[in-house]
Computed example of a mutant assay.
Amino acid sequence: MGWKCFSVDGAMRIIFLGTPGYSVTVLSSLFEAGHELLAVVTRADKPAGRGRSVESPPTAVWAREHGVPVLQPTSLRPPEVAAEFAALKPDVMVVASYGRILPPDILAVPVKGCLNVHPSLLPKYRGSSPVAEALLQGDTVTGVTIMLLDEGMDTGPIVAQAEYPVLDDDTSESLMVRMFERGAELLARTLPAWDSGELTGKPQDDSLATHSRRLEKSDGELDFTRPGKQLSDQVRALHPWPGAFTRWNGKTLKVLKAVPMSLNTADHENAEDVSAGTVVALNSGEAASLGVATSNGILGIVEVQLEGRKASDGNAFLRGHADFLGARLPS
């Protein structure tokens, strides 16, 4: 038996696949719209936090609180998994950051296909890190795509799409949350027309495709021979993980928040002659109190965290580490 919060005409029988907290926005919107949730499929419970206690994914927690069955297969490839899904007789499967590619026998289960909420304007930024890639590229506009899954990586037909602005202070975290909120709204508007057959998918133009890759810890290291604007975008894109960092006196120095600034903000007579990577004081009243010279402009440091210490703003950090001014990073 599936679960829904009230009965509505046009309600669909849905298996939902998703794992992280921002996927819950999509899941709860389906529930609130009166669709019949047959099951929530998510990743396995795993240790988390300092105590390493085993925790369930946020989607599993939500599902149990709302009486929706939870399935946590270690793999989708065994035939019995597809058989279990098929026994539920879904009209459609909705995927929102599940974390695995669906094999052909799973894709074939629902009568009306598998719809995926993807946080980019496909075919731009296919792959696992589209939100971070948009920020890394300095995009001012991004969006959400509802697509029909096929066997490729984000290559299926586009069912619906909407553009949204990237805010100046967006990080991957804030932008991801907002894109899945918008994605939930777009999906809600899309499902009735998809169910009735009024809406069909449009093939992607593969010649326009770009890709995003899975991020690694090393992607966070700041190279001050690059322009300040690119480094600021890197800080935003890699928050909260893997995080932007450099090294000072052999310790990791995380850069939690930064802004691009011009050379004339430096409290230095010959700022244009300062070598890339040099820490400089900035003029009073600027958005940051200290910065690092780059190949083009200054990376204003708003918030940092030295290895083994708490996070602090630039002023507080300088009060405890006066010798930071004039340092050459990384060191």
Rank of each mutant, 00 (worst) to 15 (best):
T74G: 05
I301P: 01
S275V: 12
R126N: 00
K202N: 14
M261F: 03
I15M: 15
P192N: 14
G34P: 05
P240R: 10
R126H: 02
T42W: 09
S218L: 06
G183R: 05
A287M: 13
V41Q: 03
G243I: 11
I14M: 01
L27D: 06
L149A: 01
P90F: 05
A327Q: 13
L186T: 02
L115P: 01
R213T: 03
L38K: 03
H35R: 07
L27C: 08
I101C: 00
W248V: 07
D154V: 00
A281R: 15
K217L: 11
A162P: 09
A287E: 12
D313N: 15
V61E: 15
E272C: 03
P57I: 09
S196Y: 06
V81Y: 11
L186V: 01
P79Y: 14
K310G: 04
A237P: 02
M176H: 09
G308F: 14
M176D: 10
A209S: 08
G51V: 00
A184K: 04
D105N: 15
V68P: 02
L167H: 15
R43D: 09
S28F: 02
A281D: 09
V24E: 13
P20H: 11
Q161W: 07
S262G: 00
K217C: 04
S28P: 00
S262K: 07
F245L: 12
S7T: 13
S129M: 04
W194C: 02
V302T: 05
R236H: 11
L107C: 04
A237F: 02
A39N: 05
R319T: 07
R43M: 10
L17K: 04
N296Y: 13
L102C: 02
S128R: 08
T210I: 08
R178Y: 15
R50A: 06
